[in-house]
Design a protein around this nucleic acid. Structure first.
Length: 684
DNA sequence: AAATGAAACGTTTTT
DNA sequence: CGTTTCATTT
């Protein structure tokens, strides 16, 4: 039984009476085992699995914990436990009431926000330099996570100097919210806000809510926990690992736990089973410079000494990546137990290139590269449009691939189709009942009819030579004056795919049809040509074939993923909610510090330890602080079990800048910054 | 309005 | 170093 293997301090926490329990669990102290033990204890003492809610930071973490429980309890019992991230769990509840709810990617919402922002003429207002659309959007996201007070009040508390613009900002935010409703978009935050507004949507009262990574919960998540009114709370976290301030994570959630819940019990897990003594000692030396919120003294749980952490100093940035790749190569195999960890994603490319040069396999966490690829985006836009026909953005992205159609015409086509179908996109495409043209707001661009005199406006006779099937030739969309022959052919291909998947429920079938469609095949060809274009404009046929193969492989991968989902909205939402959790390939792990949270490796390289980059000075000016950067350093080094390498470089050949070493190297006792820098090369 | 080519730009972390 | 923005042409 899971409780058997726990040490006394873990067991004390796992068997705590119902109430408000806080477990301070330092890195490597068996946090996961304790949570698993706690759930086992609850089940053994007669708590129904339906009355347990487990909230984790990633869905992977939830999956690992439930998998461990399934070794001791029947799977169908464990499956009744509600487990997942705040967002995944909220979505599950919301979809019971609203099966068609569809999430929208954050990047797309940002684009929507920007388009709302761009309607404002700040120049005319002349009230000082306004925040950029992008920064304002970030602030708004942060506000939603951080505060329940009105936006303008929250905003003015931090940015008094923007007081003259606050009404414009508030207006932008209002219109953005309205647009989201109009298009049927849900943001990550909307999921949590919805549950907060209507906690009964959970459909039950929980005996106990367990919260993992409690130090990284933000005000919104804290409010959500309280709104659920659980009989008992079990929060596990480590204030030294709070690294999500930029996302509104509030260390005060953990710091004021005992004040907010006067009956709180606090447990501390202090025995580290992960890292060797010298690694732990280095980590503690640095983190002790931060304020101690709850007392804790880490004990080394492992036997024996272990190899002291090593500092690697390189003359030049790229030389550093090469040097590390060479060290990894020379030790051979066991690549998946090695991690290279960095503060900024920018470091990843140099490391990856150096490894690949030596034929060393590696994987980067964060499937951004996969979901950002145009070919994947296109397929997802197709599927998304089926899940949410109100999604004009998806429609525009699709039709921008048609020659002669840009965003402006695509938008009009969408409006036309809605009009033909009396508000129903499907009907407008497949069975238009209205054949008149809609009245659209004319754009002011009437440059002497520059484009209109060579077209027979709205007449379908201009397509007579295309030899179109009747259903296309008679479609009222062809009356659009700006639609050329290429556009019509694109519409025909789109129409065929759309008709072929009509009333199809399963995402896998929809994708299979899409992969076979002429619509997709032509887009693959176009993308492959783009990627095989040489500097002189010619297309390298070999490269084109390679590019096509890569594109098709991604399509198949997406199609394989789709097989696991019953309906289209579920699939789309899963891709958005958990997309970043899938990592491609195997080998050396390339991770940002944030992505490394909760993981452990035999050997860890922390790279680019230069002042400015780590700690990241730019970010410190914004939402961060040196304390937060120090916690990031602490998280990075405590990922290591046996070997830890800290590396830095003095000079960047590309940007022609020199670096000072990171202050953390000094705090770790590896260098003295006021003395001469150490010799280049390797030293202890 | 769209397509193309040239110039600037900036380089944060996640559900 | 790749994307994003701007200017020019059609």
């Amino acid at each position: 039984m899971p409780l058997r293997g726990l040490n006394p301090e873990q067991k004390a926490a796992a068997t705590a009476p119902a109430g408000h329990n806080l477990v301070i669990a330092s890195a490597g102290t068996g946090k996961t085992s304790t949570i698993v033990g706690r759930i086992a204890y609850l089940l053994q003492t007669g708590v129904s699995p339906d009355a347990i809610l487990l909230l984790t930071f990633t869905n992977k973490a939830a999956g690992e914990m439930t998998a461990r429980l399934k070794r001791h309890f029947p799977a169908d019992t464990i499956d009744r436990i509600e487990a997942g991230t705040f967002h995944a769990v909220s979505y599950r509840w919301i979809r019971r009431e609203d099966p068609h709810a569809v999430l929208k990617q954050p990047g797309e919402l940002k684009t929507l926000f920007r388009s709302v922002y761009d309607k404002r003429n700040f120049k005319r207002l002349a009230k000082g330099e306004p925040f950029s659309a992008s920064y304002l959007y970030e602030l708004y996201q942060l506000y939603q996570n951080a505060s329940r007070e009105p936006f303008d009040r929250w905003f003015l508390e931090r940015h008094t100097d923007h007081e003259p613009l606050i009404d414009v900002y508030a207006d932008i935010v209002d219109e953005y919210e309205e647009s989201k409703r109009e298009f049927g978009f849900l943001s990550f935050n909307d999921l949590l806000l919805r549950v907060l507004d209507e906690p009964t949507i959970a459909g039950r009262t929980f005996q106990e809510v367990l919260v993992d990574e409690y130090q990284d919960t933000n005000t919104l998540q804290g409010a959500l926990i309280d709104a659920l009114q659980p009989h008992s709370l079990f929060c596990v976290g480590d204030y030294d690992q709070s690294i999500y301030a930029f996302n509104g994570a509030d260390i005060r959630n953990i710091a004021t736990f005992t004040e907010r819940y006067p009956d709180a019990r606090v447990f501390t897990l202090a025995t580290n089973y992960r890292s060797s003594a010298p690694i732990l000692s280095l980590a503690n030396r640095v983190i002790e410079r931060n304020e101690r919120i709850y007392p804790k003294t880490l004990r080394v749980g492992r036997e024996g000494g272990g190899m002291p952490p090593r500092l690697l100093v390189y003359e030049e940035l790229f030389e550093q990546y090469q040097g590390i790749a060479e060290m990894i190569r020379s030790r051979g195999r066991g690549y998946d137990q090695i991690a290279v960890i960095f503060r900024n994603n920018a470091s990843a490319d140099g490391v990856e290139a150096s490894l690949r040069e030596r034929g060393i396999p590696c994987r980067r966490k964060g499937g951004t590269s996969f979901f950002d690829a145009k070919e994947v985006r296109f397929l997802l836009d197709l599927v998304t449009l089926l899940a949410n026909p109100k999604d004009m953005m998806a429609f525009i992205h699709i039709f921008e691939y048609a020659d002669g159609v840009g965003a402006a015409v695509a938008q009009e086509l969408y409006q036309y189709l809605l009009h033909f179908g009396e508000g129903d996109l499907r009907k407008g495409i497949l069975a238009p009942t209205v054949r008149t043209l809609p009245r659209l707001k004319r754009h002011k661009n009437t440059q002497l009819g520059l484009f209109d005199n060579d077209l027979e406006v709205g007449s379908v006779r201009r397509f007579a030579h295309l030899d179109l099937p009747e259903e296309i030739f008679s479609h009222p969309l062809l009356k659009h004056p700006r639609l050329g022959p290429e556009g019509v052919l694109f519409f025909q291909r789109f129409y065929r795919w759309f008709r072929s998947v009509d009333r199809t429920q399963r995402p896998a079938s929809v994708l299979r049809k899409a992969l076979q469609s002429e619509l997709y095949i032509r887009i693959v060809d176009r993308l492959a040509s783009q990627r095989a274009r040489l500097k002189n404009g010619e297309i390298d046929e070999n490269r084109k074939e390679e590019a096509r193969e890569r594109i098709l492989r991604k399509g198949r991968l997406l199609s394989d993923l789709a097989a696991h989902y019953r309906d289209i909205p579920r699939f789309v939402n899963a891709m958005i909610l958990g997309g970043s959790e899938l990592s491609e390939g195997e080998g050396v792990n390339l991770l940002t510090v944030h992505a490394s949270k909760g993981l452990e490796f035999d050997t860890v390289f922390v790279v680019d330890l230069m002042d400015g980059r780590f700690p990241n000075r730019k970010l410190m000016e914004r939402t961060g602080s040196l304390e937060e950067e120090r916690r990031l350093f602490y998280v990075a080094v405590t990922r290591a079990r046996d070997e830890l390498y800290l590396s830095t470089a003095r000079y960047d050949r590309v940007r022609k800048s020199t670096f000072k070493p990171s202050i953390f190297l000094e705090e770790a006792g590896l260098i003295r910054i006021d003395s001469e820098p150490p010799e280049s090369g390797k030293m202890v």
